[in-house]
Design a protein around this nucleic acid. Structure first.
Length: 423
RNA sequence: GGAGAGGUGGCCGAGUAGGUCUAAGGCGACGGUUUGCUAAACCGUUGUACGGGCUUAAACCUGUACCGAGGGUUCGAAUCCCUCCCUCUCCGCCA
């Protein structure tokens, strides 16, 4: 959530940022206007309350002395009614204001390039080469089914399209990847946490999935709980409504979780194989940092994620998202894309973002101030390290051999019972 | 699912026959005095949010709200009433 005061004091800056990310700035005028009325009302209410407090005191004193207080009673009754009325009005305004504010996306950081959509994203660096290892590389779904490690039909039978079943080495590969990633991140200084996969509304609102994107979530109506679309939600909310000590920062977590996404509105895109599914496994990194260092932390977060791609010997590129392609809560995002020669595509396997204080303000994750300092929020960041199915797809295509086998990268072999090839 | 107990500041904890509660006291933290150093002792400070004033800004001054949440009664609510949420204990059920 954007600071209300920023909208009040510097509406043009907010307008500019929203325009840059292709978000309508029309809500802004409404917020500006409501905020002003809200403050005027507060002033009136407080004046009346002050009046009431003084009178109450006087009534108490006079009553002790046995004086007549009927007049005061009568006039205070009127005052109280006025207060009640104004409070009701202002509560309505505040609710409206909250909804509006929760719907406004974060502002892009100054270093984020201009642009309306993904076409304007900038490649920061490329590692390895994006080319076919040999001519007729099979797409991952064909390779996977040929090896008997991927069973898309079974997924359809059990749960419908978009759900996948891995068998044998396929299942082992998933488990191995999760383990490798977690071990690497622990080595990099992250604390592993194991978290709930169902969360309530407040958590979803804290990280920004709600109220705007409810249709994208799986929801258990009976208990009003949501299946998490990413571990970012429970992990970031670990510190919801709390104040963090400066000397405890940065806090770095990593976590494995399955991720559930309805993918509403994206039917027809990437329907084959592992590229777009309703449930997938992911290892996520989350950081809580001091505002001064959040952009440095974004860089190391990104290299902590690319280290996994290096370990898996996969070619990849790091892309800075342009303002128009930025996620709702993010101020700056690097996407990591690995090349899959079988489908000839760059696959997004990670998204590393700095949310600055956008999530922290929503989730009330504060930073304890030192003397004479204005009260602050921490900055939160997260990045996948990495999302599994697309990594598996990439492995099945990049490490494919002309003889129809798939080589297991050396760093992964200890987690794969020492095997060199899949299947 | 059933029964009971309870939710008060960073933490512990008092306070409910409504009116200096402007929330005691303690701990912790911070500052100071003392001290060769540390500790102890003593003195002092100590929340959050939102307004207003002053200001480049901070500091500061001032006001209001906040005792789980929301309503109600009242001139006045931590205190009385209603609804809801959460935590704990016991019982039941269960991997």
């Amino acid at each position: 959530m954007i600071d209300r005061r920023l909208i009040r004091d510097n509406p043009e800056r907010v307008r500019e940022g929203l325009t840059r990310r292709q978000a309508g700035a029309d809500l802004l005028d409404k917020v500006f206007q409501l905020d002003r009325i809200h403050r005027t009302n507060i002033h009136s209410i407080e004046t009346l309350q002050h009046e009431r407090n003084v009178a109450s005191q006087e009534i108490a004193t006079r009553k002790k002395q046995g004086e007549d207080i009927e007049n005061l009673h009568a006039s205070m009754k009127v005052t109280s009614a006025k207060i009640k009325e104004l409070e009701a009005t202002n509560k309505a305004i505040e609710e409206e204001l909250d909804v509006l504010l929760l719907t406004i996306p974060n502002l892009p950081h100054a270093s984020v390039p201009d642009g309306a959509d993904a076409a304007s994203n900038k490649v920061v660096r490329t590692v390895g080469t994006a080319k076919k290892p040999f001519d007729d590389v099979l797409p991952h779904w064909e390779m996977g089914e040929k090896l008997g490690i991927l069973d898309l039909e079974a997924g359809r039978i059990v749960s419908g399209r978009g759900f996948i079943v891995f068998r044998g080495d396929g299942a082992l590969l998933c488990r191995a990847l999760i383990q490798l990633m977690l071990d690497m991140h622990i080595e990099q200084g992250y604390v592993e946490v194991s978290i709930p996969f169902l969360v309530h509304r407040a958590s979803m609102t804290g990280t920004g999935q709600l109220p705007k994107f409810e249709v994208d979530m799986y929801r258990c109506a009976e208990d009003d709980l949501f299946l998490i679309p990413t571990a970012e939600v429970p992990v970031t909310n670990l510190h919801r409504e709390s104040t963090l000590e400066k000397d405890k920062l940065p806090i770095r977590y990593c976590a494995y979780s399955p991720c559930f996404r309805r993918e509403a509105g994206s039917h027809g895109a990437d329907t084959r194989g592992l590229l777009r599914v309703h449930q997938f496994d992911k290892v996520e990194m989350v950081k809580f940092v001091h505002p001064d260092s959040s952009y440095d932390e974004l860089e190391t977060l990104t290299t902590d994620a690319t280290a996994v791609l290096d370990a898996l010997e996969l070619p990849y590129r790091v892309v800075t998202l342009c303002a128009g392609d930025l996620g709702f809560a993010s101020a700056k995002t690097y996407d990591l894309e690995t090349y899959a020669p079988g489908v000839d595509k760059w696959l997004e396997v990670s998204s590393c973002s700095n949310f600055e204080d956008f999530q922290a303000r929503r989730a009330e994750i504060r930073l304890r101030k030192s003397d004479g300092e204005k009260h602050k929020f921490v900055h939160t960041l997260n990045g996948s390290g990495l999302a599994l199915p697309r990594v598996v797809a990439s492995i099945l295509e990049v490490h494919q051999t002309p003889t129809g086998r798939v080589r297991i990268p050396a760093k992964l072999r200890p987690y794969m019972r020492g095997k060199e090839f899949l299947g």
